[in-house]
């Protein structure tokens, strides 16, 4: 195997990073081992479970199936990039409240899948939610409470948006 290095640059969770890697490193390993962002998990290494899900260039991606150099120039969001100023993202809040978390290993990927889904479709129905998280396996919850969480977050985000609009009008 090669130890040859190459340098790549990308933005991860809003921060610009320049990092040395190899052509044989998976993006998942770069994120976990080099950047120590261990919220991104490995469950199968073959794109079948969704535990390693990240958002790359505004798309949901299994980071175990991306070579690190393929992320050169990319914009990446991992679970650590959600929420602002110590406040949780409404999706994270909803997961906690509805009991959507059991062992928690699928949770980071699942939350990101939900995030992407709600960005693209702010009012999903149950079937659309199921499809949106269909690449993320969960062995504990039976999915029901995860779907409830996404529903709840969708409602809150809509409400939040309306309130913000209302404020703008008042101003």
């Amino acid at each position: 195997m090669s130890t040859h290095k190459l340098t790549i640059e990308f933005i991860i969770n809003g921060q610009k990073r320049k990092i040395e890697t190899t052509p044989f490193t998976r993006l998942l390993d770069l994120i976990r081992d080099d950047l120590h962002l261990t919220g991104t998990k490995e469950g199968c290494g073959k794109g079948e479970c969704g535990a390693c899900t990240i958002i790359m260039n505004h798309q949901l991606v299994a980071s175990c199936l991306v070579l690190a150099p393929q992320a050169d120039g990319a914009e990446i969001i991992t679970i650590e990039g959600l929420g602002e100023k110590g406040k949780l993202d409404p999706i994270q809040e909803a997961f906690i409240e509805t009991g959507a978390v059991q062992c928690g290993f699928c949770t980071p990927g699942m939350v990101l899948a939900a995030k992407k889904l709600l960005e693209e479709n702010p009012h999903p129905n149950i079937e659309e939610i199921k499809r949106g998280i269909s690449g993320n396996l969960c062995r504990c919850t039976g999915y029901k409470k995860i779907i409830e969480a996404i529903n709840l977050a969708a409602k809150r985000l809509t409400q939040q948006l309306e309130e913000e609009k209302g404020k703008e009008k008042n101003v």
Binding site: L37, G39, I79, L88, F95, I96, V101, G104, T107
Partner: peptide
């Protein structure tokens, strides 16, 4: 709410 769920949703568990 579950005592360990916050750590899990933020990826810090």
């Amino acid at each position: 709410i579950k005592v360990d769920s916050k750590e899990k949703v933020i990826g810090k568990a």
